[in-house]
Design a protein around this nucleic acid. Structure first.
Lengths: 195, 195
DNA sequence: CCAAAAATTAATCAAATGATTAAAATAAAT
DNA sequence: ATTTATTTTAATCATTTGATTAATTTTTGG
C-alpha cells in the first residue's frame, strides 16, 4: 500500500468531486476535505480551481475518447474485430466510470473547442483506413454514421441508466446484465446497419 | 406581439439560463437580467432558485420524454409508424432545443429519482402494447432494448454534436443534413435490429 | 547540527451570490 | 378620490467560496 503524494491525493479527490458535481457544482473545500489536506494546499500546488479542473478534464477526456483512434486506425485489424474491441473496451471502462460520459459531454457542450487538436488528429489517421475497410467489406455507410452508431449504441445506455431504472424498464441489479448482453449483440447490429 | 407577464418572463429566462448552465452554474442575477426584472422579483414570485429550477426541469423533462408513452402505447398504430413518428418528433424537437438532452440527463444523473412516478406510469401503459406488437411482427428483441436502440440512435447524435464537429467528422453547416439523413434511415435500422 | 527550502496550517480577505427588507410605484377596490 | 392591495425597486444582509497571507512545521542540503 503506497501512500500517495499530496499532489496525487488532491488530483484523486478532484477527479472524484469534479466528475460527480461538474465544474460549477464542485467546491474546492470539498476537494480539499476529500483529499485530507488543507484548502490552501490546493492553491499552493495548482494555483486555482480552474487549473486543477483542466488537468482532470483532459485526463478524463483521454480516458473516454483516447482509445478510439488507436483501434480504428490500425490497418491490420479487420473491421469486425475493431467493432468488437471498441464495444468491449467501452463497456468495461464505463461500468467502472459511470459518470464519465455525462461529465465529458456536458463540458464539451459548454466549452466546445478545447480538444479540437487531439480530435482532428485522431480523425485524420482513422478516417481513410475506415473508409477503405468499409468499402472492401461491401458496406455503403459513411464513416461518421458508422462511428456514430457504435458510440450511440454503446455509450448512451450508460447515460440513460437513471432513466431506464426510474421507468422500471431495467432494475439496478439487472443493469449490468443488460449492458453485457448489449455488448455481445452490438457488433452484429453494427454490421447489419453498415450494409 | 403579446407582452408576457412578469412571472412568464422570469420562467422564460430561467429556461434559457438553466438549460445552458445547469443548476449550479446558473446565477439568479443572470436570470433576472435576462428577464429584464429586479432580482428581488424572482424571489417574490418563486421563493427561491430551487423552486424556479423545479418548475423548469419538470417542464423540460416532459418536453423530452413526455412524447414517448403516448406514441408507444397506442394499440391502433403499427410498429413501423410508431418508430418513424418518434424519430421524426425527436429530430424536430432537438434541432430547436440542442441543450435539452444533456440538461435533463445530467440532472437525472445527479438527482436520480425525481420522475419515478411519471416514468413508471409511462412504462406500464406502453410495455404490454409494445411486447405484443414486437411479437406479432415476428421480432425477438426485448422492449427495453427496442426503446434503448431508438433513443440511442436518435438522441445521442445531438449530444455528440460538439465532439463530431471538433473532430471534423461533420461540419457545423452540414450537421442538420447529417441529422435529417439519419432521421430517414433510423426507422429501417431499428426494424433490422429488432428481428 | 544548522540554515535554507519546501510543505502545511490557521486565519483572513474579497468577491460572488441567494435572499430579505423597507420603501416607492402602480393597480385595484370601495 | 381615497384607501387598500399588489407589484417593483434599491439597498443591504448573510453566507458561501475561491484565493491569499503570514506564521509554523517538516524536509533537505551542506
Amino acid at each position: 500500500m503506497e501512500e500517495l503524494s499530496t499532489e496525487q491525493k488532491i488530483i484523486a479527490a478532484a477527479r472524484s468531486v469534479f466528475t460527480k458535481k461538474g465544474f460549477a457544482g464542485a467546491r474546492t473545500r470539498d476537494i480539499a476535505e476529500e483529499a485530507g489536506i488543507n484548502l490552501a494546499l490546493l492553491n499552493y500546488y495548482f494555483g486555482s480551481k480552474e487549473n486543477l479542473f483542466k488537468i482532470v478534464i483532459k485526463e478524463k477526456f483521454e480516458q473516454l475518447f483516447g482509445m478510439i483512434s488507436p483501434i480504428l486506425s490500425d490497418e491490420s485489424v479487420p473491421l469486425g474485430t475493431k467493432i468488437k474491441t471498441l464495444v468491449d473496451n467501452y463497456t468495461k471502462l464505463l461500468k467502472e466510470n459511470e459518470e464519465l460520459p455525462i461529465f465529458i459531454l456536458n463540458e464539451l457542450s459548454v466549452n466546445g473547442h478545447i480538444f479540437d487538436e487531439l480530435l482532428q488528429y485522431a480523425r485524420q489517421i482513422s478516417q481513410p483506413v475506415l473508409e477503405k475497410q468499409l468499402k472492401n467489406n461491401g458496406m455503403t455507410l459513411s464513416v461518421p454514421n458508422f462511428i456514430m452508431n457504435i458510440i450511440s449504441l454503446t455509450i448512451f445506455p450508460f447515460i440513460a441508466k437513471p432513466l431506464f431504472v426510474s421507468a422500471g424498464l431495467i432494475t439496478i441489479e439487472n443493469y449490468t446484465d443488460f449492458l453485457n448482453e448489449r455488448r455481445d449483440n452490438i457488433p452484429d447490429w453494427i454490421m447489419k446497419l453498415s450494409k
